[in-house]
Computed example of a mutant assay.
Amino acid sequence: MASINFDNALGLHASALQLRAARAEILANNLANADTPGFKSRDINFREVLAGEVEARQSVAVERTHTGHLAGRSQAEQQLLYRNPTQPSIDGNTVDSQIEKAQFAKNSMDYNTTFEFLSSKFKGLRNAVRGE
């Protein structure tokens, strides 16, 4: 009996779900600091980071072999960018609450879509294991 390879079964969707969760944290941090003087709004380019995940899957991965080794930065952390403000404030804060809320809502919908897709994949795998 052959074992199920989850990387093949799920594709990049598991990585996409983790990336969307990381982006939600970044956007929530922006919203939480909307009134902090000098705070610079940050975001990631989802497509670029996901393309980096694809490339990383096709190359030799570097893994921590000892707990004393330093962990590498995630793709999202490596590609964290500053958002260009449409109307900079006097105090140097670049958070535009309306843009951040819109991006957060879109990211939430995308997260839910990816989650539902993965859920249906797991249901299909469960049915396959049961022989249904």
Rank of each mutant, 00 (worst) to 15 (best):
F104H: 02
L12A: 10
F6H: 00
A2L: 05
S97R: 14
N127W: 00
L50K: 05
A61Y: 03
A16I: 04
E48Y: 02
P88N: 01
K40G: 02
S3Q: 10
N93G: 00
G72D: 02
A105D: 13
N33T: 01
G92H: 07
R57A: 10
N33D: 12
A105N: 14
N112F: 05
A34Y: 04
L12P: 06
S74P: 06
A71E: 13
D96V: 02
N45D: 15
Q78E: 15
V54D: 00
Q79C: 06
N30A: 02
G72R: 14
T36Q: 06
L17C: 02
L50I: 04
T65N: 08
A34K: 07
A9D: 09
L50W: 03
L70S: 11
A14Y: 12
N30T: 04
Q58A: 13
N29V: 04
R20D: 05
G72S: 13
S89Y: 05
F39G: 00
A22G: 12
N8V: 06
N5S: 11
A102K: 07
F104P: 09
I44L: 06
H69R: 11
D110K: 10
E25C: 03
N5W: 01
G38K: 04
E53K: 11
L125C: 02
P88E: 12
I26L: 04
Q98S: 09
A34F: 01
H66R: 12
D35G: 00
Q87H: 13
H69Y: 10
F117I: 13
T67E: 10
N107T: 15
E77W: 07
S3I: 07
Q58G: 15
S108D: 06
Q75S: 07
L70D: 02
